[in-house]
Design a protein around this nucleic acid. Structure first.
Lengths: 152, 152
DNA sequence: AATTTAAAAGAGAGTTATTCTCAACAAGCT
DNA sequence: AGCTTGTTGAGAATAACTCTCTTTTAAATT
């Protein structure tokens, strides 16, 4: 199972294992995600704005590269919500949750379910895979949209 | 729970409920997916090629519109595999399966698990949502990539 | 501490999946 | 048969993301 908390040091160690480097940009981005409210996720654009608001000018290229890197390391979860871009959030088993998405209005509800991670663990182990993240995504129609006559 | 099989007639009925129409294009695309081998999925481009091979010239615009429509109706599942485009497959509870994806080489394994659909059912019911589809996606590192020294 | 070297950042161009626009067409009701 | 309005097709437009290439810099080595 993936680690819960990364410090700058543990990130540095893991990067060095692969011949990579800890840069200020990577440290700052990790910090942003770790201080985000539980369950809050960001798109690349949103992360860029948030960084600028905090006085960090990190290029979009670097942001895209970094979130993808961290997702591949298991530090971040890459979410495919209903919008046309990805979202990222910190990957912490304690706050592990899933998403119920309305395909019409895109309203999204987070929910927890302990069995899911167990299934993910069991399945990846069985195939010899090293688990990074598992997500249950439910596509459905919310109560409001069921009622609406509009063919949205 | 969503229906298993759509005929041209049941598709027509469901479209008409919403003031929509059954067109030859929609009928042909439904037919393609229903005759696809179990578990086989197509991207919009692949679907376009397959249609052409069978002598049906349906524009890419229509293909994109149709698969999205059918996904929103619960007829198709919209899959986010590791590639940079979506895949679609027929949504049949009997053949309901999930995906284990290697984040490094993108190799994907399909697996079944009966609990997942139950969780999806229970969760959507609890929130008053009408279930269309639920997918468990596991991101992991495959055995080969764990062994490889290359930092892919 | 200075040197070295290869990874990473930044800037902006490039790519590509997907959506949008709008005129022409046609499904299905009357 | 005619009418209404949803749908198609063609291509332009959009936007998320990646790539390229030069400059910078982390960090290992001396």
């Amino acid at each position: 199972m993936s680690m819960s908390f990364y410090t700058a040091d543990s990130l540095k160690a893991e990067l060095h294992e692969r011949g990579w480097r800890l840069t200020p940009q990577r440290e700052i981005i990790l910090d942003i995600f770790q201080n985000l409210a539980a369950g809050r996720h960001l798109s690349a654009e949103e992360l860029c704005e948030l960084l600028q608001k905090e006085g960090h000018d990190i290029s979009l290229s670097t942001i895209y590269r970094t979130v993808k890197l961290m997702a591949r390391m298991g530090i971040l979860r890459e979410l495919e919500l209903a919008e046309d871009h990805k979202h990222y959030e910190i990957n912490q088993p304690h706050h592990h949750h899933h998403h119920l998405i309305c395909v019409r209005c895109n309203q999204t509800i987070e929910f927890k379910n302990d069995s899911v991670l167990k299934i993910g663990d069991k399945t990846s182990k069985k195939e010899g895979y090293h688990l990074l993240d598992c997500q249950l995504t439910i596509h459905a129609v919310c109560p409001a949209c069921q009622r609406s006559i509009l063919p949205v």
